[in-house]
Design a protein around this nucleic acid. Structure first.
Lengths: 249, 249
DNA sequence: AGTTATATATCGACG
DNA sequence: CGTCGATGTATAACT
């Protein structure tokens, strides 16, 4: 059996399942009333309540309340998760060094614990990312503007990487920043920063490529002499980078 | 009992526990071999493997692999999670409308399922956030520069919100952007955008306040005539906004 | 519902 | 190990 469950475990069982399970590469989940302390980049306290704890062998710890996508407290992978008894209660502690931080969960009442020896070699295959949008633009620069020619992809400058450095039909340089999602003011900022590298050249153009942009962003671009180009849909298959086996649904 | 566990559940039991549990406000966790499809903002496929599923009554669905902080697939709160039989397998589907997206998990082999009627009224109390840093600066502007006077907090402009609008000892205006973490190029961008609103006024200063900044960011600031002010530690208690009951540890 | 900015963001790539 | 930029970012605040 890949999963072993214990109902209403005592502190000793809990400590054993957590410590041994994690050491042997299993995921350990607990249902328990608990209180939580965090100290690190900020600090905080969560009073007693029923939560779901997930401990992974890579040092990940998640504390989930009944609502919401994000764990209320957590530790990312890379640290250590351990369990010890303290005053008859079990205390689960997750730590890491960089940055130095700690999550401490004191279990008041454990309803259940499950050791799960999960075997998973699969990797997630994703399609429609910004990388694919780049590949599509590189293959179809005309979609942005007639006569546009890509000169360089990911050009490094002292202010960061420019998505595309191109030339237009008249041979003038064009700095291009590409976003997969609706353009924001920060994206405008980013483009402006890159264009500012060439401010001694009046001929240089700046182009923000995205599926959409708010009126405020469009105005900011206009005010700075920059351009917005809408690119909503791009043929994901045409890039040749997709190989996910998606069944039809 | 707050938690009910079923070992090696059949598809009917699974469907019942998921549907009934979620409907009645419980968290449902599953250990199962499964494959996952996502379609929405992007699309993707995850081949068969052992994962932990977490379903919450608010429509949250999490699919966790054995490693890593982030779920490999998920649905945020606000949608619906449902379970149905298909070809003898159980299929868990999470959907939402805005944006329109769907996660579909086909269970190949379920090792265990737990219904958890969690009761949690506590709220997380946090200290050391950027809000508190703002409160500290508002109470102690001298920490940034002698004679500095805060004129306005969160000033709205056509290009977004300015953290602080202030005047220096000489009465010149100062635009201040505050970051709780090390300053990045994006933060520099943001400050520069706000300062650009006053570019007709040569006297206006721009100040980026953060615990640290990379050399690249400092150079970018210098090149644009903007200033960096280091504010690493601020007395969290002095702001009067903390009321978390942190036990000493 | 749309926009803006924050986050204990996390994560990956690159130097 | 630091820095930088993407993320199906999620989330809160405000319009």
């Amino acid at each position: 059996m890949a999963a072993e469950h214990y109902d209403s475990p005592d502190a000793e069982t809990l400590a054993n399942v957590v410590e041994t399970g994690l050491h042997e590469g299993a995921i350990v989940t607990l249902q328990a009333e608990c209180e939580v302390e965090y100290d690190g980049r900020t600090s905080g306290y969560l009073g007693p309540g029923d939560r779901l704890l997930v401990c992974k062998p890579d040092g990940t710890l998640l504390v989930h309340q009944p609502d919401g996508h994000k764990p209320v407290n957590w530790m990312p992978a890379g640290g250590t998760v351990s369990a010890r008894e303290s005053d008859g209660d079990l205390v689960v502690v997750a730590r890491r060094v960089n940055p130095r931080e700690r999550v401490e969960v004191r279990l008041i009442d454990a309803y259940g614990v499950t050791r799960y020896d999960a075997d998973d070699a699969a990797e997630y295959e994703e399609s429609g990312t910004e990388d694919e949008m780049h590949a599509y633009i590189e293959a179809h620069p005309d979609e942005l503007e007639d006569g546009l020619r890509i000169v360089e992809h990911e050009r490094e400058t002292k202010y960061g990487f420019i998505d595309f450095f191109a030339t237009d039909a008249d041979g003038n340089p064009v700095v291009i920043e590409v976003k997969r999602i609706q353009a924001t003011l920060n994206h405008f900022d980013q483009l402006k920063r890159y264009v500012s590298l060439y401010e001694d050249n009046d001929e240089v153009r700046g182009m923000l490529v995205a599926p959409s942009a708010s009126e405020r962003v469009r105005r900011a671009l206009r005010d700075s002499g920059l351009e917005f180009v809408e690119l909503a849909e791009f043929d994901r298959d045409a890039t040749g980078t997709t190989d996910a086996k998606l069944s039809d649904f």
